[in-house]
Simulated assay, not measured.
Amino acid sequence: MALLKEFKEFAMRGNVIDMAVGVVIGAAFGKIISSLVDDIIMPLVGVVTGGINFTDYKFVIQQAVIDGQTQEIIKPEVTMNWGSWVQTVVDFLIVAFCIFIAIKGINQLKRKQEEAPAPAPAPEPTKEEVLLTEIRDLLKEKK
């Protein structure tokens, strides 16, 4: 029971919940960026580079072993898929750039709030206002 209570206190802390929300949003953001890279950026890069699809690029370390009669793969080929790695690096760079821009914007907002001049103090009342206030207070006392 003590362990359960301690876990509940841990899980209900604000920073843990904030972190969980950040992880969920980050995962969703990662999917959006992956789609952006896979479906928009890399096809454009392929057109610019003459139809290259980076995900197809790989180094074959060991060829597949195929049965000569049935053409069935006995042992699949072993490859280093460097094209997929390039695409993942592009994903990372875009995510990192987007996070950089977001943090830069947040920091600018913080600086503007910190640099905002404090409101000017209320001006001192004039002699006439002080006198009128005293008269008002005296009239209230007489009632």
Rank of each mutant, 00 (worst) to 15 (best):
N15Q: 12
G105Y: 13
K104M: 08
A64D: 04
I61N: 11
V60N: 02
L44Q: 12
M12F: 14
S34T: 14
I52R: 07
F100E: 06
A118M: 14
F92M: 14
A120M: 07
P121W: 04
P43K: 01
G22S: 11
A96F: 11
I25N: 03
L44M: 15
K112Y: 05
F54A: 12
T126N: 04
G46Q: 01
D67Q: 13
K143L: 15
T55C: 05
L138M: 03
P123Q: 09
V60W: 08
E77D: 09
I103V: 15
K142I: 12
A122D: 15
T126L: 05
T49V: 09
I25R: 13
E77N: 06
T88R: 14
Q87N: 06
I52K: 07
N53S: 14
I61E: 09
R111T: 15
L3W: 03
V65N: 01
I74M: 04
P121D: 05
F7A: 11
E9F: 12
E124G: 02
P76E: 05
K75P: 02
R136C: 03
V78L: 14
E9R: 14
F59Y: 08
C98L: 15
T70L: 08
I99C: 15
E129Q: 13
K104W: 07
L132C: 06
K127P: 00
Q63V: 01
V65T: 08
P125W: 11
E124Q: 12
F29K: 01
Q69L: 10
I32A: 09
I17K: 10
A120E: 14
Q63N: 13
Q71K: 12
F92W: 14
Q108V: 03
C98M: 14
K31I: 10
T55W: 02
D38F: 07
V21L: 12
G22E: 03
A120G: 07
A11L: 14
V24G: 02
D18S: 11
I101L: 05
F97G: 09
N15A: 12
P121F: 07
G83F: 03
L139K: 10
L109A: 13
R111K: 08
G26W: 04
L138F: 03
E115A: 11
K75L: 04
A116V: 02
G105L: 12
P125M: 09
K142P: 02
I103N: 01
K142F: 13
I106A: 15
V21D: 08
V78T: 15
D91P: 01
L139S: 12
M1P: 10
I66L: 03
I52S: 03
D38C: 05
M42K: 00
A116F: 11
Q69A: 13
Q62H: 06
E134L: 05
I99N: 05
G68F: 05
T55V: 15
I135R: 11
F92Y: 12
G68M: 08
R13C: 00
G22A: 13
A102D: 04
L36F: 13
I40W: 11
